[in-house]
Structure formats: C-alpha cells, structure tokens
Design a protein around this nucleic acid. Structure first.
Length: 153
DNA sequence: GCCAACGTTGGC
DNA sequence: GCCAACGTTGGC
C-alpha cells in the first residue's frame, strides 16, 4: 500500500517543528475534533507522511515534514485530570480520543506560507484553503503532495 | 485584538 | 430533533 499524505496543524507557540526536530518523535495528542480523531484512529497508516503546519503563526504555513510511526493510540491526556486536554467523558474502559506517534523527517529552509499556497490553482481544493476550514488533521492528495514538495526545492 | 466560521452543548 | 447560545479556531 502506498503511503497516504496528511497535513497536521499545531500552533508553534505550543509545539513547533523545532520542538519535533529536538524530540525526534512525539505523540500528536490533544486533538478534540471527531473528524480529525477519525483520521488518526481509522485512516492513517504507519509510514504515511504528514506536513507539519504552523497555525496562528508569523507566518502561518507548512514548516516541515514528518512520518507517522504509530496509529490509533489512546490519547492519555484526555484521561489525565491535571492535563489541560482532560475530557471527563473519556475513560480508561471507554476512551474517546486517539492520537498518533509522529517522527521528524525534515524542517524546510523557509516556511511555505499560507499566502503562497493560495496562489497555486493546483492546490485550490485543499481543505486548508477553503474558507472557514479549521480541521487540524487533513488529507493531502498525492498530486498536491508532489506539487508542494516541488515548491520546497 | 478582532471576528467570521465552525463544532458542541443543552433546553425545549 | 431543532436550534440558540456558547466556546474555539485561526487568519488577518
């Protein structure tokens, strides 16, 4: 099975591509949206590639690339009463929230800014570029992935 | 900091 | 099941 491609958002003030570069791997926890969860629980596969997107940033845009190393892991931050991501509806017996483990692949020399991405008609169907879209885990088609990789070079 | 768009909650 | 109110996201 060929790898699938994704885009995953994080606010760099919370967790940035530099943090992932330093950590090498991290758990993509704290996602509290059902569609994003379903992707991480049901559709992502080990070996898939994901763009690391900096949201609420200066500039906002794609900052690097990572690889999915584990999927459908219980998000333990939801069970932790002391976590800001705690969700009382999630229990050990019936966890609600799931995450993936991701591995650093590369940091781009330059942020590929949202304003740049918007200028390419090849990318106009990306959920990222749709008005009002704020899904934090999104699919990227193979052609979109290749096109963006070429923009990086 | 503003605010449009979105997802979730809860009263009915 | 509807939908208003609310909290959050995230670009600008």
């Amino acid at each position: 099975m060929n790898p699938q491609y994704w885009l995953m958002k994080s606010e760099p003030s919370v967790y940035s591509i530099d943090d992932l570069k330093k950590d090498k791997k991290t758990l993509w926890s704290g996602v509290r949206n059902y569609q994003a969860r379903n992707y991480m629980m049901n559709e992502m596969k080990e070996g898939d590639l994901a763009f690391f997107y900096h949201s609420n940033a200066e500039p906002s845009g794609i900052a690097g690339l990572m690889k999915i190393t584990k999927v459908a892991l219980v998000d333990k931050t939801a069970l932790d009463k002391k976590s800001e991501y705690h969700d009382p509806k999630s229990t050990i017996e019936k966890p609600i929230w799931f995450c993936t483990e991701v591995q650093f692949v590369s940091k781009y020399n330059k942020i590929l800014a949202l304003t740049d991405l918007k200028t390419h008609s090849e990318l106009k169907d990306m959920p990222l570029l749709q008005k009002g879209s704020r899904l934090s885990v999104q699919k990227v088609s193979p052609s979109e992935f290749k096109f963006i990789e070429n923009l990086i070079k």
